[in-house]
């Protein structure tokens, strides 16, 4: 009996983790985009002395902060900043790590050994500390944060890409291509890269979860983009003196962070199940 293999997106949607991931990530991305096009319910930075520290209500679903700013609007704006930095960080880490991983897996011993050594060394510094050190050196701008967060994730991309490339190098169709006289570049980018794309996508999704978390941690420590840029981590840190009277000041940014982190994690799990059915996670069982 032949049954058509379900398409990639259908497969992702049929997977419980994948579906949860799609919904949560969709929510977060749409929220961020609303802020990007300026479609937040209020002007996020608008201070209103009449509405300071009001609890959640119909007009302010997430409540207001100590300056009377609408928390929903602020959270959406913070989410957009977070997503921008996270996507940029993952783009940096993904491109650099994948390239290094492919080269390390495909080229000869010397280059490979060199790349893996440097990777091991980067890996030996806890990623968040590396980010802290880089932020110390570069300053707290958005681009600097992205670079700081991205560098820490490069070694993981290198490792997950290099393994499959090592075994693909001796795969029949790659050998055939070599016999046919294809150039290394062509073999690498047309024949090998597409086969590690799945692995990279899974890792990118998990990296996004980590990056959102790292960005929030940096701004929580006061090392993120400076005010008036809205930032979820900074909102959590501000709330620590307010939350005993106004719990929503802590809840609003926290919910956004948690939804984003769990969403990207679920999406990564779902992608892994779709790309590699052998590794079904405990969640799906």
């Amino acid at each position: 009996m032949t049954r058509r293999r379900p398409g990639f997106l259908t497969g992702l949607w049929l997977n419980p983790a994948g579906r949860a991931g799609c919904v949560l990530v969709g929510l977060v991305v749409v929220g961020g985009l609303l802020a990007a096009v300026g479609a937040t319910p209020y002007n996020a930075q608008l201070q209103n002395p009449l509405t300071t520290l009001k609890g959640p209500s119909l007009s302010h679903p997430f409540g207001t902060d100590q300056f009377g700013r609408d928390l929903l609007s602020l959270v959406l704006e913070g989410l957009w900043v977070s997503l921008k930095i996270a996507f940029l960080a993952v783009a940096i880490a993904g491109v650099a790590g994948t390239l290094a991983g492919i080269i390390a897996g495909y080229l000869g011993r010397w280059t490979s050994a060199l790349i893996m050594r440097v990777t091991d060394m980067l890996f030996a510094i806890p990623a968040i500390l590396l980010a802290l050190a880089i932020v110390t050196a570069l300053g707290p701008g958005a681009l600097d944060s992205a670079l700081a967060i991205g560098v820490g994730y490069v070694p993981i991309f290198v490792r997950v890409v290099r393994g499959p490339v090592l075994s693909l190098r001796t795969a029949g169709y790659v050998q055939a291509g070599r016999v046919l006289g294809f150039s290394s570049t062509r073999l690498l980018f047309r024949h090998i890269l597409p086969n590690v794309a799945g692995t990279v996508a899974v890792q990118a999704s998990l990296a996004l979860a980590w990056s959102v978390l790292a960005e929030a941690s940096l701004s929580f420590l006061g090392l993120g983009p400076p005010p008036p840029t809205a930032s979820l981590g900074e909102m959590v840190s501000q709330s620590s003196s307010l939350a005993s009277q106004a719990w929503w000041t802590l809840a609003a940014p926290s919910v956004a962070i948690v939804v984003a982190v769990i969403g990207f994690n679920f999406l990564g799990d779902g992608l892994r199940d779709v790309f590699d059915p052998r590794s079904r996670t405990a969640l799906a069982a």
């Binding site: 941690s217 840190s237 939350a243 948690v258 769990i262």
Partner: peptide, 22 residues
């Protein structure tokens, strides 16, 4: 496990401090 993996430690920590104090 879901709480431990999904909720960042600084949110748990801030929440815990607030809860205990208030």
């Amino acid at each position: 496990a879901l709480v431990g993996l999904g909720v960042p430690s600084f949110v748990i920590g801030t929440g815990l401090v607030t809860f205990l104090a208030s």
